[in-house]
Structures are given as structure tokens and as C-alpha cells.
Amino acid sequence: MISLVKTDDLRKTYRTGSVAYEALKGVSMDIAAGDFITVMGHSGSGKSTLLHLVGGLDRPTSGSVKVADHALHIMSEAALARFRRRNIGFVFQFFNLIDNLTVRANVELPGLLSNGRSRSALRERSDGLLRQLGIADQAEKHPWQLSGGQQQRVAIARALINHPTLLLVDEPTGNLDSTSSETVLEILDACHSEGQTILMVTHDPRAAARGQHVFFLHDGRILDQTAGGSAGRIGRRLAEMG
């Protein structure tokens, strides 16, 4: 097994004045290239914090995080930015699209941030992704002119534009109706079947059931992990955690 993501005793403490809140309390995990991992947990369990640390958006208080042999916890701000650009694709619950850019501009944005990338190749890639995700006809619209499901598909296209090593997905269905949720999950499945490594955090058992492995995070610690399973089983396990 080739390890793509490796965290070792990962801890994160947030401080507000004199009050400290420990969001992660020593998380160690290994994700192999090509895996589809889901992280389950209730609100405040530390799911998003884990995703942020793996994605290099934040730095751990202690412990280490390595992605594709890059030790993110010791990289500079600029190096992290370049790393994210080249290796990570993010999909958020609230889509986080840039409102004053068109759908096409949003999708091409990470590609444009990298110098030296051919514009025609980028256009070809974005057109292909938009077609593949069924939103080619929306390319010249702005995000606020699209439905939630369409916006999430734009976000996925944007995340995939640079052929990321790792796709990080944060509650992708949390803001969508059931039909749109299903479409988005199918797209993620399709990506995975094409070899894309995915780490998804969610509290939706149906979404979690798409993963090959499910990590159960509770109170900043990984309590359990299962090799997939049905949505019902995952839901019950989550309920057991309280």
C-alpha cells in the first residue's frame, strides 16, 4: 500500500482569549492512493479541523501531517499555497464559489493561478469537466444564477481542474436536496472509480456509505473505523457514539 496521507498524533487546539478548545486530540491515520475515505462524526467532533489540516489550510498544534511526501506542518505559507494549488482539490458544503466570476472562470481559476499552464489546455479541461458534470450550458452564468446542486457541481469541477492528488470534500450534500445530493455523490463515485483519492467528511450516513473506509471521529479522536458498510449500519454506529 502506497501511503498518500499520513497523520501522526495530530492535535489542534483553538484559543479564544484564555479559553482553549482542543478540537483534535491525537489523530493518526493512513490513507492510500486511490482510497475513498469518509470521516463521520457529529457537529464539533473535529471533522472539518482534520480536513483543514490535511488540506494545509491550517497548522496543527502538534503532531505531523504528510501528504504525497510533503510535510505540511513545516511548510511556509507560500509553499503551502503552491502545494494546495497543485495537489489538493476542495469541495465545501457552501460551495464557496466566487460570485463575480462566471462558472467557467470559477472552474479555471486554480489552473490560472499556476504559471506556465497552457490556456488552451485549461479551456479544454474545463469544458470537458463541465460537460462531464452536466453543466456545460451554464458556463457563462454566475454562481448566484444556479441551483445549489449545480453550484456544487461547479465546485467539484473547480476542485478537479488541476488533476489533484487528493480531493477533500467537506459535507458536500449538507446544503442540497436529496436529488442533488445523489447526483453529487454519484459524481464523487465516478471520480473515485477513475482513481481519484478522496477524503470526505460528513454526518450523512448515506454519503459516508460511499467510502471504502469510514472513520468515526468523536470528541477529537478516532473511535472506530470500518470497511464501508450500509448507510443504516453507519447511522447506527454514529448514533451509538452519542
Binding site: R85, I88, F90, N96, L113
Partner: peptide
């Protein structure tokens, strides 16, 4: 602020 956060997530460096 939100847009800058997103852009940084997508890999925009502080200098950019």
C-alpha cells in the same frame, strides 16, 4: 474576506 479565503484555499499565495 470570503473570496480571499476561497482563493487562498485554491492555492493563491500571500504575494498573489
Amino acid at each position: 474576506t470570503r473570496d480571499i479565503g476561497i482563493l487562498k484555499t485554491l492555492g493563491m499565495t500571500p504575494n498573489q
